Amino acid sequence: MLEITNLHATVADKPILKGLTLTVPAGEIHAIMGPNGAGKSTLSYVLGGRPGYEVTGGSVTFNGIDLLDLEPHERAAAGLFLGFQYPVEIPGVSNVQFLREALNAQRTARGEEPLSGGDFLKLAKAKAALLKLDMDMLKRQVNVGFSGGEKKRAEMVQMGILDPKFAVLDETDSGLDIDALKVVGEGINTIMRSPDKAVLLITHYQRLLDYVKPDKVHVLAGGRIVQGGGPELALRLESEGYDAVMAPESANA
């Protein structure tokens, strides 16, 4: 579903991604872990098309199309969803208004009929209940006055409503307490674990992977994928640290 080949990218003329190659097939959830400054968030922003992140080499295909050739809104309409490490506040715009406009814009781009107000509210209530988010929260301004956990749950509701084919989730576990972590993890499984969908889950910690079991775990360091394995790799990273696991003798074990 997602094929990244020898990807190079710079931010403010500083090379960050330095030949990253990664494949995420449909039906799978892949986790990326790595030390600070490795390029994890840069990868998510490059895939989402954030301005200021310049691709200087390599390719990215998504369902057979050139992802890098699309504008950010075209990537979203094609089925790509980006979950932010720090969801932004949008004063003056309610979640309901924002989500209905976003969904109908994507439906229009795909040649589908927009949802009526009534149909949208039914959908929003169902997705909010899934994430244990009070519907009143969706009537408030986007993320304004929300706690860290509320922002992440609201973002997962957004993902449920938009129903993407591929989700890039950048440190979704950041700011979550134990209860919220479980709710968000279950939400990711319910929304995205499907034979025709896939997830790239970027995280610092193994704890989210207790709830969202990855098919593969990749280690990103120095702008490249340097090691990969199954879920047990995340447990090793948690117990031994990056330096120990990425040592030459460990990599060859």
Rank of each mutant, 00 (worst) to 15 (best):
G92P: 07
G92K: 09
G92N: 10
V93K: 13
V93L: 15
V93W: 02
V93Y: 03
S94R: 14
S94E: 08
S94T: 15
S94H: 11
N95E: 12
N95K: 04
N95F: 11
N95G: 15
N95A: 10
N95S: 12
V96A: 14
V96R: 15
Q97A: 14
Q97P: 00
F98C: 13
F98T: 06
F98D: 12
L99A: 02
L99P: 01
L99K: 05
R100A: 07
R100K: 14
R100W: 02
R100L: 11
R100C: 03
R100P: 00
R100I: 09
E101C: 04
E101I: 13
E101Q: 12
A102C: 08
A102R: 11
A102F: 06
L103H: 03
L103A: 07
L103G: 03
N104T: 10
N104V: 09
N104A: 10
N104F: 03
A105G: 06
A105T: 15
A105K: 08
Q106E: 12
Q106T: 09
Q106C: 06
Q106G: 08
R107P: 01
R107A: 08
R107V: 07
T108H: 11
T108Y: 07
T108C: 08
T108L: 15
T108A: 15
T108W: 05
A109F: 07
A109W: 07
A109C: 06
R110P: 03
R110T: 07
R110D: 09
G111C: 02
G111V: 02
G111Y: 05
E113R: 15
E113S: 15
E113V: 13
E113Q: 15
P114D: 07
P114W: 00
P114N: 08
P114F: 00
L115K: 09
L115V: 07
S116A: 11
G117C: 05
G117H: 10
G117F: 02
G118Q: 09
G118H: 08
G118V: 06
D119V: 01
D119F: 00
D119H: 03
D119T: 01
F120N: 01
F120T: 04
F120A: 04
F120D: 00
F120P: 00
L121S: 10
L121Y: 05
L121C: 03
L121P: 00
L121T: 14
L121V: 15
L121A: 13
K122N: 12
K122L: 09
K122C: 03
K122Q: 10
K122T: 09
K122V: 04
K122S: 12
L123K: 14
L123P: 00
L123Y: 01
L123I: 05
L123A: 07
A124I: 06
A124M: 08
A124Q: 07
K125Q: 12
K125H: 12
K125I: 06
K125M: 08
K125W: 00
K125D: 07
A126T: 13
A126Q: 14
A126F: 05
K127D: 04
K127Y: 02
K127C: 02
K127Q: 14
A128T: 05
A128K: 04
A128Q: 04
A129N: 13
A129Y: 06
A129T: 11
L130S: 04
L130Q: 14
L130H: 04
L130R: 13
L131P: 01
K132S: 14
K132Q: 14
L133N: 01
L133G: 02
L133Q: 07
D134A: 10
D134N: 12
M135N: 05
M135T: 12
D136V: 05
D136E: 12
